[in-house]
């Protein structure tokens, strides 16, 4: 177990570097740069552009600086954009430590701010939970809890009552969960709950009021809820037909014990598998939901960063996401052994 953990944790490093390298290639291959403005706007002039490139280290070599190596400057060989971001390098005459020091770099777009300040620093005088990352994390967890708490019982019940009205109702809910895009569901729920019934404001002014979190969490969690419910139902049906369930029942175990001990545990493998990455995806936020509800989270930052080519924000978010995904997957592998002790994690 310990060996497994250590090995997997060590694997984090090469994976992160590969992810960073791919992202780096992609974002520089995308046309335009961070100082290009919306097409309707006046663009930055050439002089300022050059100056900004220098200030942000965009005038350096991308990967490896061969001319510097020719001059025998080994440090200079690695003093390039990629390694400056990942490990460290000189920018605008100053040495700066990179991502390995937990430094996410200066934002190219929200000038003057570092990526940490944007996503991790809460507004003045508030707790870290009120930072953008904190908001996304909270919303993601709420959505996940919603999906699990509603989805799993829904799946279990519809498996136990297969082909009854309950089953079809849950199928209907699940199908609408995946087929209605969040940008559609969001606006309809807003109209129903805010405009018709006046239960919540359309645009939450105050996110410290818990009631305004419900709608975005529901919209965010609905897709996962649908999948969870359907997967739970399918695996339950699968498990119910296995011989050992018949044996368990034959032994006279109570119906409830059979369901919880034997069926549910075995049926959870596919659910847990999708849950890991889903959690990572949920807590890094959702562009559409954040835009629609005016939610100050991280997800919007990321999508904006891509369209604005805010290189450090893109890299930072991707790397954090990669880290979360891997930790989630390690956890999933560990949970497998708990659910089915015969499964060996290699």
């Amino acid at each position: 177990m310990a060996r497994f953990l250590i090995r997997r944790l060590l694997w984090l490093i090469p994976v992160m570097f590969v992810v960073a390298a791919i992202t780096f290639i992609l974002m520089h291959a995308a046309p335009g740069g961070p100082f290009d403005k919306d097409p309707q706007q006046r663009q930055v002039d050439a002089i300022t552009q050059k100056r900004l490139n220098a200030q942000f280290g965009l005038d350096k070599e991308m990967w490896l600086d061969f001319p510097a190596l020719m001059q025998g400057n080994v440090v200079g060989f690695f003093d390039t954009q990629f390694f400056t971001y990942m490990i460290g390098g000189t920018v605008n005459g100053e040495w700066r430590c990179g991502f390995i020091c937990g430094n996410m770099g200066p934002s190219f777009r929200q000038r003057g701010m570092t990526v940490q300040q944007i996503v991790l620093d809460p507004p003045e005088g508030k707790s870290p939970w009120d930072s953008k990352a904190g908001y996304s994390l909270r919303l993601g967890l709420l959505a996940l809890i919603f999906a699990v708490v509603v989805g799993i019982p829904m799946g279990v019940i519809s498996a136990l009552r297969q082909n009854t009205a309950v089953d079809y109702a849950s199928l209907f809910i699940a199908t609408s969960g995946v087929t209605v895009p969040s940008f559609v569901m969001g606006i309809f729920l807003i109209i129903i709950f805010a405009v018709w019934f006046h239960l919540i404001p359309v645009v939450p002014r105050d996110w410290s009021d818990p009631t305004v979190w419900i709608l975005p969490a529901v919209v965010l969690g609905f897709g996962l809820l649908a999948q969870t419910a359907r997967l739970t139902r399918a695996s339950m049906l699968e498990v119910m037909r296995q011989d050992y369930i018949r044996t368990a029942r034959a032994k006279g175990l109570s119906n409830r014990m059979v369901i919880v001990r034997h069926m549910l545990k075995n049926a959870m493998i596919p659910v847990v598998t999708i849950m890991g990455p889903a959690l990572a995806a949920l807590v890094t936020g959702s562009f559409i939901i954040e835009t629609m509800f005016g939610f100050p989270g991280w997800g919007r930052q990321f999508v904006l960063a891509i369209s604005q080519r805010d290189y450090s924000m893109i890299l930072a978010t991707t790397l954090v996401f990669a880290l979360l995904i891997q930790i989630a997957n390690i956890t999933v592998d560990l949970v497998y052994t708990f659910l089915d002790p015969r499964m060996k994690v290699s």
Binding site: V303, I314, T318
Partner: peptide, 15 residues
């Protein structure tokens, strides 16, 4: 799969 899962597909589409 971790790598494919992690890198931003949106950026990939843009490119």
């Amino acid at each position: 799969t971790d790598i494919v899962y992690s890198f931003p597909d949106l950026l990939f589409f843009v490119v």
